[in-house]
Every structure is written in C-alpha cells, then in structure tokens.
Amino acid sequence: MSAIPNTAAPVLEPVLEIEHVAVHFGGLVAVADMNFAVHEGEVVSLIGPNGAGKTTAFNVITGFLRPTKGRIRYRGTVLTGLRPHEVADLGVVRTFQKTSVFDTNTVFENILIGLHRRGRCTAWETLLGLPRVRAEEKRLREEAVEILEFVGIARRASELGGALPYGEQRLLEVAVALAARPSLLLLDEPVSGMNPAETSSFMRLLARIRARNITVLLVEHDMRMVMGVSDRVVVLNHGKIIAEGPPAAIQQNPEVIRAYLGHGVRGEGAKRA
C-alpha cells in the first residue's frame, strides 16, 4: 500500500535526537517538552493542526531559533547553539514553509548557490585565479546539471527562480536543499499548493531521495502524502506530542482524531486555516 517500498530492514540507530525541547515566545509556549528521535534512513512526518509548533520545531533544529530549554543532537553532535550554516555543515538542511528561492537568479544559479558547501577553494585561491578554482567551478556546474535532472526541472535552467510556476518553485526549493548534500532533509509542507498530480510526482521524488540514503523529516498537511510516505508519524498539538507511531496506528488514534476535529486525518488532505 505504501508508495515507498521499504527496502532494507530499518536499522534503528537514532540520528536526530530531540530531548526535552521547549520554545517560548514571551508567554506563548510554541513547543513544550518535545522528545522524539529520527532514525537513519527513515521518513518521519511531523503533523498537527495549524499553530501546533511544527515550523518552530524545524527552526530550533536548524539553528534559526534557540530553544528555551532542552537539547538537540545530530549524530552525536549537539546542534543547540549552532548557527544555521553550521547546522547545514553537519548535513542537516531544511526547506521553508513559505516558498523561498532566489527569485532574481536563474534556476541554474539557484542550484550553484545551493552547492556552496561542495566548494572548497578559498577567497585567496579565487583571487589568484588558480587552476583548481576553475576545475572546481566546472565540477560544481556538472553537479548542478545532475541535480536539476534528478528533480526534473532541467529545462527551466535558464529561467529566473521567481518566474517559475508555483509547483516548480517548490521543486526548485527542494533542489537547492539537495544541492547542499544533506544527510537529513527537513521539508516544511513541500506539496502545499501543489495539485494532486504534482503531489503524486513529488511522492515519487521523495522515494528517489530516500533511495539516496537521505533521512527525511517531513511536515505536511496533506494526509494522503503523509500516510503514503512515512515510516513513522509524530503528532503535535499545542506544542506537545500527543501521539507517535506508524501511519496506520495514527489514523486510528482517538486523541489524534480529536485534535484534528473535523479536519479529517484520513481525508484527502487537511483543510488549511
């Protein structure tokens, strides 16, 4: 039934560990005592009604916010207190809920920027114009082509990021994130605003991303997608985890159903506020 064939038996080794994390905005508790782990090779979905704290969780994991309490570790390294680019350097790369590409750069340049981490030449070497700088540039360009083809937007290479149709902009975001060679990819509502056909094709893309040994943490309101791609689902409500388990169990969980009251966990996709 699952769209993603679960190839190898899952090795239960936690890569991302979230321990007692809380985020307060003044008096508002956006995330309260959050505990969960993501294991090597898994696709885990983080779901919950609007305002549940999902994006906030992404922001603390990737260093855009500091947690009020708690600790986050990735493959043993403590992420708490690191800045976003340092988190990215450890292989944890996220996308944004609100579409975010480099609007005034071409699609190809978007990917080249995403490939930043893949380059090693220093500013001095660049200034001196050493041959290795040129060699590196050539290699980066080849990698960019490969990524564009992988995601399926190669024919858009010379168009401006901001000029792409919405669905392709969302693909470009994922392509930019993939360019940074993540080992853990965090996707914040990647198919919101996509039509069902685009969503299905995105689910197939996710399967291919997974086949590249990239662990995925997904925030998504589209329940067809969540139930279709996830190994495990973590349900958040008012900043607290109210349920955790395989998709089938989550769909039956009375507390989850209550939290979504009328939004329908089983339905075609939860209505957005």
């Binding site: 790369v93 590409v101 609007d103 340049e109 920027i113 930043h116 660049t126």
Partner: peptide, 27 residues
Amino acid sequence: RLVLSRVGRAMIALRENEPLATSVGID
C-alpha cells in the same frame, strides 16, 4: 574575480535571501 565566483555567489545569495542562503551553509 570575486564576484563571478562561488564567493560572489555567496554574497549575492545573502543579499537576495539571507535565510535561504544560511540554510544551505553560507556563513
């Protein structure tokens, strides 16, 4: 030289969209 290189791309990326730039590892 600077501007037409990976270094310059990083600078432009920061100008255009800083959160996105930092999220892919640009300091």
